[in-house]
Nucleic acid binder design. Sequence first.
DNA 1: TGGTAAGTATACCGGTCAGTTTAGTTCGAC
DNA 2: GTCGAACTAAACTGACCGGTATACTTACCA
Lengths: 192, 192
Amino acid sequence: MTEQPVMTPAAERVLEVVEKLFYDNGIHAVGVDMIAAEAGVTKKTLYDRFGSKDAIVRLYLERRDARWREHVTAVVEQPGRFSPRRRVLLMFDALESWMAAENPRGCAFVNALAELPDPDHPARPAIASEKQWVLDYLRQLVRETGARNPRKVAASLFMLFEGAAVAASFDVVAGAVAGARDAARQLLDAAL
Amino acid sequence: MTEQPVMTPAAERVLEVVEKLFYDNGIHAVGVDMIAAEAGVTKKTLYDRFGSKDAIVRLYLERRDARWREHVTAVVEQPGRFSPRRRVLLMFDALESWMAAENPRGCAFVNALAELPDPDHPARPAIASEKQWVLDYLRQLVRETGARNPRKVAASLFMLFEGAAVAASFDVVAGAVAGARDAARQLLDAAL
DNA sequence: TGGTAAGTATACCGGTCAGTTTAGTTCGAC
DNA sequence: GTCGAACTAAACTGACCGGTATACTTACCA
């Protein structure tokens, strides 16, 4: 989450280009030569700015996480004062529009974890923190509904949430996110 | 699912060794030299038996899928004649024991999909078929309970199922699979 | 006016990638 | 007793990996 001070134009171009390359092709499959070529930047510049590929991977995930959180909070906390119960369900609307607009390859953080098994990889904190944030946010929203067992309910909604992303990326269930939202409503209402 | 006719001892060793290497480190991170060395086999032999790394990847996923289906059906269809409702929930017991015994790196098929974005990769059918089987099996089990809307209920349980695996691999929710089973019971009972 | 940061262009490093080649060994079956 | 299948050993290919080195240009700023 620690946003870098200022990015030079070339560095900014690299981070823009990398967002699509890493997500679409996977991290290992994208080499630094391809990144430099696609961004219209020399490898020298790339290494002067970032120092290593791993650092670029870290920034890729941190920036994507930041965009994702902005998207979610913009949907959930939109003006109009929705009820706490409604705000919980808006999380799933946020996921639905994110998946539709962004990409069909599932959760970038789940995918990144699959590619980076090393617990000491510099990008791991960014990966862990995204999921922790989603869970914490759900917990807060559920708590505000006054539901019984808010932690347990939030955990169930979290799994529906992540499962919906998996189901959508495998294209095995039609209307996965909408179905997850329906199930979430049922679980939530049963605890109210 | 098409199991190969007969594997020579060396080929069998390769497939045994690859199961752990690919799952633990990811597919891209494991080279054919490492596979050959770990299996105590020459690269020549490896290529004589399998022809390409992609073919080994395909067999890795097919064999893991076969083991997984055997595990699930052994738990769900264990002698003692459980009720249909109980058998649905046994799916989650199967997942729990699988995760505990096998590995903490989440679903191998979700991870493989993250690493193999090419829709034409020879291993893709194996990846898709595992998830389709889980969904179909859940549909069948739910149908046998006589629940209303069996397809919709099964889809919700499927997402809880996949989400539990993600939650467990991120280690963000304690007792993820047990929590998913509780939520599944609630959704199922509401449809009976 | 002179220094510095940001950039280009290009060649290079050692290592690893998937895959091939050549030569020789072991062993059971017909 | 010979043929073939399964295997070892080891060198090799060309491409690509992440990362570095050298030399030069541009532009702003004190």
